[in-house]
Design a binder for these strands. Structure first.
Lengths: 225, 225
DNA sequence: CGATCTTTCAATGTCAACATTAGGACAAGA
DNA sequence: TCTTGTCCTAATGTTGACATTGAAAGATCG
């Protein structure tokens, strides 16, 4: 009912290529600053340059890569200024998403949030694989945006989602203990506020949640080139 | 004249095509729901289908058109729900842009805002061409986002900018008197608050400015198909 | 030896042809 | 008449070749 079951959306090669390259960036195969040559990717992925080009354009709109006229495409670098920009925007978007979802969320969607928190706790109990925890973190916020039900808001989130994902991966690299100690509690509180919390408190906590992530990343970033 | 002069960035045919099609949509040549066929546009603009395709992808990321797999591209329709989504997001973005610009704006950028307000007043005195007033309105907010200096925030604004432009054109169609009577005053107040206003007041007024636009459009929308 | 102009080339921008598909026209059956 | 299955066509998805360009290597001059 929320999102109908027939997710049989048939996609083109461009989306496929974008997914593959995005995964390669997250896995570290393409480090920050690495050039993404169209011909090379086309050969490696077994598709034409046109499709690769379209896929790269999509990644560019996600902010994961940057490109200029006749100057190629490269993976973005994670500078302190970039983090400031992304997290400032994310705070505003998360605030709106949370307050909107507070009114619009269905019982099923609220349960999905609880389920994700439980998965985080289970993951930590089993040792705590950092990339998987980050994936669950992102999925949690995806669910909030879905519950808000504002397509444009979701698009705005998707435009910085991959960057946030990349930044969070970097964050667990520089401050895993801090992250591991707070993930479950912070998200559990957000889930509770979304179910039956005061709107103003929810708005404030949603912003503070992002602020916490920003500080955690920035604390370990400027020292590392 | 709208933005800084260093606009010498050499662009490709895709951008050119996107600009042309966007202007055609604003002018009413392509009404809401109209299909945008690649071959037809390629012939009329004198470029290849590839460039048109890339340009249409850009317009899709601006939210001006919608497209599906093998289902072509069509101009969006202006429904009440669409307006709700766009204006809710715009309120959040404008709020962040205003509060950020309050600290970061230079004297030159603040003067540019005053200049735009003066142009609005002059335009009204000379009769008041609706499309030109809307263009100045949009340019005013462009300037605020530029003053904020957050690239990601500006990108998020650009993702709904064309939709807002389209909605505002529709708004002056259904409630021109209401618009004409308030544009100058509302923007003059925003400019003053950006120069020397309280942050909280500024945040509230920035949101209310959008809320005012939303109500004005919605009041005349549901009746028209 | 350093600076500036020229050349070169690898990579991107553009294009037109081929392959695939969604949606409608049409006809057979209940 | 309504449903269902088939076919057809117009439009999009995909591809490899050709044109253009930015930047670095090389040459020339002061």
């Amino acid at each position: 009912m929320s999102s109908a079951l027939p997710k049989a959306a048939r996609r083109g090669l461009a989306d496929e290529a974008a997914d593959l390259v995005r995964a390669a960036i997250f896995s570290g195969h393409f480090p920050p600053g690495a050039p993404l040559r169209e011909v090379e990717l086309a050969e490696r992925l077994g598709v034409s340059r046109g499709s690769v080009r379209e896929g790269l354009a999509r990644l560019e709109h996600e902010g994961l890569v940057r490109g200029g006229w006749h100057r190629g495409t490269t993976v973005i670098r994670v500078t302190a200024e970039d983090a400031q920009e992304v997290y400032a925007l994310r705070a505003a978007l998360d605030r709106l998403a949370a307050t909107t979802a507070r009114r619009a969320a269905t019982a099923e969607q609220l349960s999905a949030l609880d389920r994700l928190v439980a998965e985080m706790a289970a993951e930590i109990a089993e040792g705590g694989d950092a990339p998987r925890l980050v994936a669950l973190d992102i999925a949690f916020h995806d669910q909030i945006y879905a519950a808000a039900g504002n397509g444009r808001l979701t698009s705005a989130w998707e435009a910085i989602r991959s960057q946030v994902h990349l930044f969070q991966l970097r964050r667990v690299d520089v401050a895993y203990d801090h992250y591991r100690a707070r993930v479950v509690d912070e998200h559990r509180e957000l889930a509770a506020l979304l179910r039956s919390g005061d709107i103003r408190t929810l708005a404030r906590r949603a912003e503070e949640h992002v602020e916490s992530a920003r500080r955690s990343l920035l604390a370990g970033l400027p020292t590392a080139p």
